[in-house]
């Protein structure tokens, strides 16, 4: 009896294990979709968020797709007409048109799939441009698509917080000309413009270029100098009545913000929290020796704004610099 039990039990065990591991075959849905947020940086007004919305069917044809944003997007929001594939010979992504009639009406964007006989599965790009109204708010997206069989699928995105920062790209500075920068205005002025438009109280720093400076002719280069710094501005004829605020300027060489750089291949981003939490203990009122890809955290003398000023390029011959700015209002 014992022997029989010993022989039979393992057999039952094996059968039980086999049965327990068997999975049920579930027929996949004929119409399916998925969503990928391609943008990794913060959602900033002046830049866009990019999504890749994929949809495919095994029954009938794809008909159209729709994206509904919880907050109306700015100009440029909507689907594009193209899907992309990588050319295996060159490694370069190339577009192929898979959609038409891309329309954005309010918060809703739509597109019709074309060449449906072959386009049984497509991935379309959807761009969303945050607006001033969306600053500091969460925005969500509901993507959906239909097929010729009347079926519909949808994908609800998580919520994305739109940054409170302002961003301005490519401000051209020229020593002795367009050299007066206002963080409040996110603009650069000439001496005459400062005087004519009564901007004497709005200038936070001045751009100068001096190859060398000091009695020993020490290297100096491209610099951002607060009006309070008399040493480096002694040879500059300042606008009449220019206020002398001590703007705090803290140089950085390794903060290559991808959005301010405005090129692909970089994934460092200044976000709201960086400008909120950056402290300026004993910070200087100038930054010198600046070259491309460097920058400085800046805090206005009245404490109203914190900003990151990124140097896009410098030109020693033309004594010029191109900067981009991310700014956050602190109070």
């Amino acid at each position: 009896m014992k022997t029989i039990t010993r022989s039979v039990l393992p057999v039952f065990g094996l059968i039980f294990l086999t049965l327990s591991c068997k999975t049920k075959d579930v027929a996949p849905e004929a119409l399916r979709n998925d969503l990928l947020k391609k943008t990794t940086g913060p959602a900033v007004v002046g830049d866009r968020i990019e999504f890749a919305y994929a949809i495919g069917t095994t029954e009938g044809d794809l008909k159209n797709v729709k994206a509904e944003a919880s907050i109306v997007g700015g100009t440029g929001t909507g689907f594009t007409r193209f899907s992309w594939f990588t050319n295996r010979n060159t490694g370069v992504d190339q577009p192929v048109q898979t959609a038409a009639d891309t329309i954005t009406n309010g918060a809703t964007s739509t597109a019709n799939i074309i060449d449906v006989a072959t386009n049984k599965a497509v991935t379309l790009r959807y761009y969303y441009y945050p607006t001033e109204e969306a600053k500091g708010k969460d925005v969500t997206f509901r993507f959906s698509g239909t097929s010729s069989t009347g079926k519909e699928v949808s994908f609800q995105s998580p919520a994305y917080r739109v940054s409170r920062m302002d961003m301005k790209r490519s401000l051209a500075l020229v020593d002795g000309a367009k050299a007066y920068v206002s963080i409040a205005d996110m603009a650069v002025y000439t001496k005459a413009e400062v005087e004519q438009n009564n901007l004497a109280n709005k200038i936070d720093f001045i751009y100068i270029y001096r190859a060398t400076l000091g009695t020993g002719n020490f290297a100096f280069g491209h610099a951002l100098v607060a009006p309070s710094n008399a040493d480096y501005l002694k040879d500059v004829t300042l606008p009449t009545g220019l206020a002398k605020p001590r703007t705090l300027i803290d140089k950085r060489v390794d903060v290559k913000d991808a959005q301010l750089r405005n090129t692909t291949g970089f994934d460092v981003y200044i976000d709201d929290i960086d400008l909120q939490q950056t402290t300026f203990p004993n910070a200087a009122d100038f930054a010198y020796g600046l070259t491309a890809d460097q920058g400085a955290f800046v805090k206005t003398a009245d404490g109203a704004y914190a900003a990151y000023v990124y140097v896009n390029s410098v030109n020693n011959t033309a004594k010029s610099m191109t900067i981009s700015i991310k700014r956050l209002k602190l109070n």
């Binding site: 400076l213 100096f220 203990p281």
Partner: peptide
């Protein structure tokens, strides 16, 4: 320290 160094920080 180099010319222009902020000695306070």
């Amino acid at each position: 320290a180099r010319y222009g160094t902020n000695m306070l920080r």
